[in-house]
Design a protein around this nucleic acid. Structure first.
Length: 825
RNA sequence: GCUGGAGUGGCGGAAUUGGUAGACGCAGCGGAUUCAAAAUCCGCCGUUGAUGAGACGUGUGGGUUCGAGUCCCACCUCCAGCACCA
């Protein structure tokens, strides 16, 4: 009679039933809307354990919320543009789209085998023109509002992927995808003024109180707001040149400035050298710096090097002559690419000055030092605070007051003033690749940059391309780029760069709301109903790229009038990595476990259960084959007990329950309460599942399947509730048993069981008894026992008496339901 | 260096936020069942002690408290992100 647990049979049957009944469709049941989203996958070909974990977490939450009566939107799609498709196309001499769609099909099958609760009607692929036409439109709105601009600038060039990278995409000086050392190139390209939103992106982090602190901190660092001053240094003896502007956080040390340093890429570097006649040496130095950077792979500079340009600036307050140097440690990417050097109070400047024999002028006196700082005896820069000296007009001021005083003075004489500087740079979005969304502009000799008119969108990628050449197939295409200028009708050429693929993922969560809309990117009604995303789940590696861009897009779209919401993701969960043998799973380490094999062997329910049980979502998860086996063993146990319960006669709960009945009912309802609580409070599925396991131990002890020691109705209830509680984690086996126990609709469409608080409450509690804070015994008392009764019972304990013997109790502490502590002398 | 986080049995991890440290699972040990195996079931399982009483025990050292894994001070180690950021 007892068929063995056969996950494959159960899972395929339920997956088709669910699909046939459309139980996952958003709006299928009504209820309060809830938008639950996991980061969509790149269709690389196969899903990996990281995906399985990510989607198991999201699915468990989704199923729980559905049972709690929410109308959950839970969509899935494909982040389908990107380099791997193009590389595969080059290798196989085929088309990236072919590779991409084949992978999507493969991965869709895999996800469906996991039995995930997605609304597949909303599936989207970002490489589809029906998707990307709307991001072209959004770009044109950015262009119109001055948020998108084209400029010639120094960019990060990935020599392997043959494309430009944004700052965020350079990791340790290497391309985030290719791993190749990044080079600096000067290119015409498109940028997005994300820096216009720097302040808001920073300050709104405050309100994201359901985001992990780590992610907020990373974004805060990334945006890098610092308060300081902008200071203009006029040129000495070259009146036709603009002053050199620097940014400093220490305007109080301005009088200690003895030289200036420019980045090698600074536009004035060569110009100054040309005027001073040091061109040859300086350009050799600049080339050396560039070569060192490429060779080191990183921005890692071993020793500080520099060269004097031969030119001088004037100190903005004293008009003293300030030599202008070029130095390898000055970054063009930060501030203005030029710094004022105060060697007495900045360690880098100090080292540089000592190397090249430059002057030191100490101007801040440390508060705990009696003798004044002296240039000749200093062994390191003093970077702390103190009182100003050697600073005519500011001597005696505290350094903090001096920051303001000097900034204001500069402002008054129009030589700078207080300012706030950000580390965040504008977002360079041009990519010299084919498999991306075309940037919808054309270049016309008469009209310059012309946006593609709305009725000509989307600008589609041509299908007939060859990947033989080194550059972009779009640039090499014989006809595609040649068009009539939309403005003057003359000959024009299309932009052949495509967008950074982070462009697609910056707004896909909005397209899900209305994925087939052909007249707008999404309807206001859909946004009104679902946006923002209530809970977003994904990997922490996107903390500073995707999540920052998505926040920016949302703010821009709000400003463009699409909606009011200014933050896209209310709650964020960043799940930990799946590791094996202490290391991230990777082909090179040979420690990859293929989800397919696990599902073949144990079924999806076991794989999911293990992933949720082994660790809370935000922690790393160590893949443990024995642990998987344990989860499988548990489900088999549930299966047997479930079948046994289905055999038990169906009756009402009796009026009078035996102690055994009450104990099992307490276990049942305590478990339900605990599962609900753990999911709602912290998404701690691991402790929720532990509670179900604990309860199953109690069910097992009740004799179910053998000599039943409890009332049949109590035993049935115990199993029915277990199956319901298990539904978010192992949905297939849960539905199968649910139907065997008399259920008529899939559990995801059924309400979460009510906790019977009375049954869940204990009628007896164990009180710990301490003497002087040390545990000396325990005692069982009725749940509502009075303090006096508890104390009496505690004093009755033989061991406690032994420890109190010969002592006087000076204090009795009673924590109701918990413990008693006797303080005795 | 800066920022964020974490240190609990052989392992993954619990501990209602100041109240019996080690739930649940894995591994291990012992037993039942079996001709045997698989599967299943029961018991033990921080260290020490003897199966008892006890002592010790949540990275280290102090402190607050009747009572500290939890709070305070100082330190150590590990992980992650950023890093010559002016």
């Amino acid at each position: 009679m007892n068929a063995d647990y056969d996950p494959e049979d159960i899972e395929t049957r339920w997956q088709s039933t669910w699909e046939a009944q459309g139980v996952y469709r958003a709006g299928a049941q009504g209820g309060e809307p809830y938008y639950l989203l996991e980061m969509f996958p790149y269709p690389s070909g196969r899903i990996h354990m990281g995906h399985v974990r990510n989607y198991s977490i999201g699915d468990a939450h989704c199923r729980y919320l559905r049972m709690k009566g929410f109308d959950v939107l839970h969509p899935i799609g494909w982040d389908a543009f990107g380099m791997p498709a193009e590389n595969a196309a080059i290798k196989n001499n085929s088309h990236p789209g072919k590779w991409t769609y084949a992978n999507i099909k493969e991965m869709r099958d895999q996800l469906q085998r996991m039995g995930l609760s997605y609304d597949w009607d909303r599936e989207l692929a970002t490489c589809h023109p029906g998707y990307y036409r709307w991001e072209q439109k959004i770009f044109l709105e950015m262009l119109e509002r001055g948020i998108a601009y084209r400029s010639k600038q120094w960019v990060n060039w990935d020599p392997v992927d043959q494309t430009v990278l944004a700052n965020e995409q350079v990791v340790d000086g290497c391309g985030w995808r290719s791993g190749a050392p990044v080079e600096k190139r000067e290119l015409e390209s498109w940028s997005i003024r994300i820096t216009d939103y720097a302040d808001e992106l920073l300050s709104d982090l405050e309100q994201l109180d359901q985001w992990p602190d780590a992610v907020r901190a990373m974004q805060r660092n990334w945006i890098g707001r610092s308060i300081g001053a902008r200071i203009d240094f006029p040129m000495d003896g070259a009146d036709d040149l603009e002053p050199i502007t620097v940014f400093t956080t220490r305007p109080d040390t301005l009088l200690g400035c003895t030289y200036m340093a420019l980045a090698a890429e600074h536009p004035l570097a060569l110009e100054l050298a040309r005027r001073a006649g040091t061109q040859e040496a300086v350009s050799a130095f600049i080339e050396q710096v560039q070569a060192d950077k490429s060779a080191a792979g990183h921005g890692d500079i071993k020793e500080k090097k520099g060269i004097f340009t031969g030119m001088h600036a004037q100190h903005p307050l004293t008009e003293r002559k300030i030599p202008i140097w070029i130095a390898n440690f000055v970054l063009m990417d930060y501030g203005t690419g030029a710094v004022m050097s105060v060697p007495a109070h900045d360690q880098r400047d100090f080292e540089f000055a000592r190397t090249y024999g430059l002057d030191l002028i100490p101007v801040i006196q440390p508060p705990d030092l009696e003798a004044p700082l002296e240039a000749d005896t200093m062994e390191a820069a003093y970077e702390g605070g103190g009182t100003l000296f050697n600073s005519p007009g500011f001597d005696g001021l505290d350094f903090e007051a001096a920051k303001t005083a000097i900034s204001e003075k500069l402002k008054a004489s129009q030589r700078g003033g207080p300012t706030i500087n950000f580390r965040l740079r504008d977002w360079g979005v041009s990519r010299q690749r084919y498999w991306g969304c075309p940037i919808p502009v054309v270049y016309c000799d008469n009209c310059s940059i012309v946006p593609v008119p709305d009725d000509e969108l989307p600008v589609e990628l041509p299908q007939d391309v060859s990947f033989s050449g080194a550059g972009s197939p779009l640039a090499d295409h014989p006809t595609w780029k040649h068009v009539e200028c939309p403005q003057c009708g003359g000959p024009a050429v299309r932009e052949t760069d495509t967008f950074d693929t982070f462009w697609e993922s910056s707004w896909y969560f909005l397209r899900y709301l209305d994925p087939r809309n052909e007249s707008q990117p999404f309807s206001p009604e859909a946004v009104q109903k679902w946006f923002p995303v209530d809970h977003y789940i994904g990997g922490v590696e996107h903390a500073c790229m995707h999540l920052l861009y998505a926040r920016f897009f949302t703010k821009f779209l709000a400003d463009a009038g699409y909606f009011e919401t200014r933050e896209p993701f209310t709650r964020l969960t960043t799940q930990g990595m799946v590791i094996k043998d202490g290391a991230k799973m990777s082909k090179s380490k040979g420690n990859v476990v293929d989800p397919n094999e696990i599902i073949d062997r144990y079924g999806a329910d076991t794989a999911r259960l293990f992933m949720l049980f082994a660790a809370p979502p935000e922690k790393e998860l160590e893949w443990n084959p024995n642990g998987v086996e344990g989860s499988y063993r548990f489900l088999r146990r549930v299966w047997r007990l479930g079948l046994a319960a289905a055999e038990v006669e169906e009756t009402d709960l009796p009026e009078n329950l035996s102690k055994g009945d009450r104990d099992l009912r307490r276990s049942t309802h305590w478990m339900l309460k605990k599962v609900g609580h753990d999911i709602e409070q912290h998404l701690h599925f691991n402790t929720a599942i532990a509670a179900i396991m604990e309860h199953m131990n109690a069910v097992s002890s009740s004799g179910l399947g053998g000599d039943l020691k409890v009332h049949p109705a109590v035993a049935r209830e115990a199993m029915v509730c277990s199956v319901q509680a298990l539904a978010p984690f192992a949905p297939h086996i849960a539905d199968e048993l649910w139907f065997k126990l008399g259920g008529e609709k899939p559990l995801i469409t059924c309400p979460w069981p009510e906790v019977d608080e009375e049954a869940a409450a204990a009628d007896e509690v164990t009180i710990a008894i301490q003497v002087m804070g040390k545990l000396r015994g325990t005692v069982q008392v009725p749940a509502g026992a009075s303090k006096d009764d508890i104390l009496a019972a505690a004093k009755g304990d033989a061991n406690v008496q032994r420890h109190l013997d010969g002592k006087t109790i000076v204090k009795e502490i009673v924590v109701p339901g918990r413990l008693v502590n006797f303080v005795a002398r």
